[in-house]
Design a protein around this nucleic acid. Sequence first.
DNA 1: CGGGTGATTGAGCCATCTCAAGGGGCGTGG
DNA 2: CCACGCCCCTTGAGATGGCTCAATCACCCG
Lengths: 218, 218
Amino acid sequence: MIHSAKLEPQRYGIAMPAKSGEMLFLEGDPCEHVYELRAGVARGISVSVEGDRQVAAFFFAGDQIGLPVTETYRFTAEAVTDLLYVRHSRRCWHEALIRSCREDGRLLSSIWAEQDPIFRRGIILGCNGVLVRLCALLSSIMDRLAVTSDGSLFLPLPQVDMAAYLATTPESVCRALRRLREQMIITMPRRDQIKIIDRERLEAFAGGVARQTGPAFL
Amino acid sequence: MIHSAKLEPQRYGIAMPAKSGEMLFLEGDPCEHVYELRAGVARGISVSVEGDRQVAAFFFAGDQIGLPVTETYRFTAEAVTDLLYVRHSRRCWHEALIRSCREDGRLLSSIWAEQDPIFRRGIILGCNGVLVRLCALLSSIMDRLAVTSDGSLFLPLPQVDMAAYLATTPESVCRALRRLREQMIITMPRRDQIKIIDRERLEAFAGGVARQTGPAFL
DNA sequence: CGGGTGATTGAGCCATCTCAAGGGGCGTGG
DNA sequence: CCACGCCCCTTGAGATGGCTCAATCACCCG
């Protein structure tokens, strides 16, 4: 409790790897660590008793997962792509939080940052029309996707996951993407790449749902 | 109602009133206060550029609204019923947070408590079928509703708000309620009262979405 | 006793889900 | 280097749940 910020130095900066599909933590597990994503994409999923999977949020490099540090994790976290992450112990994280709080009174921005995508998904799901929801999703993540050499974006999310996020079916996601292609709003040079041709119309379709919501990092 | 006072002693216990429909704060406003509900029901709403209203969450007596205290409010808060609330300044709230953090390391449970209903709505919206979503909503709030003398629950939410919460229409909410009545799962002695006859089947319809998620109060 | 708001019910249509079959890319192994 | 197999994406046709629109009803309040 009185340790300095250099607690667990052996862990600091040492990113651990995870393979695509691997689980980071399970919903309901005691919440002992905050996971900081260094590279790759992860998903937070919630499984109903019937076995239906929902993707509650996608996480990208720089995001912290597992906040706020309380009793248990609210969702299961899995790697979408291969990824690198760092685990911070609950205690460490608390200390950093208090310090940051005293310094600038903005301690909670990292908490805000994790809650935000979850909140946004709720708003996206409230929109009717698969096309609208898909555009909202794309708008909300396009600034976080890696850029390829030819200016496209690397889109590592399989359509199955997008469907689980948007509360629809993979078929509907596929058809919605096709419509965006036909309308020349996007192109998809490869299966896992997307190029935003007409960002304005994309956001117009999204219905303003994906407006910028503010600063995101600790 | 009067438990240990740590926050703003001069304001403590002085609850301010708000009329049904009144706004507490507006989405995007600088976040200077945490609102603690003492009585009544409030809703958090988000309005798209097209003017569509979505109810992101309902709040009940004991809930705190406006967390985590960061830049701006994420949604607009309005009174559903007449209500009583107390405002805590951002600074006081921060201090209480740090104190509570040092004491038990569980500082963040109040933050968790506000985020939880928002998270849950996301999961509810991910379910297909208006009936399922309605049952999930009812399951998640029934333990927070006031009990009337005859054992019914006071249900102060107009169907318009339930529809906005469930991403459906008032007509569909009405029809879903009728089906629940026909199945003898609920009765509605009055427009604003509901009696859960068969809690088990209600939760079965909800598909396990509304499972208990943990401790909720600061 | 109106007037207004919210709830109820019905009929028709449309988007999306479902189910089923085909295609393309990628990695593995020969 | 090519062939195979797997996984995911794609496309179609049919069924259906929920939305839309519109009219009526019940309740609360002045």
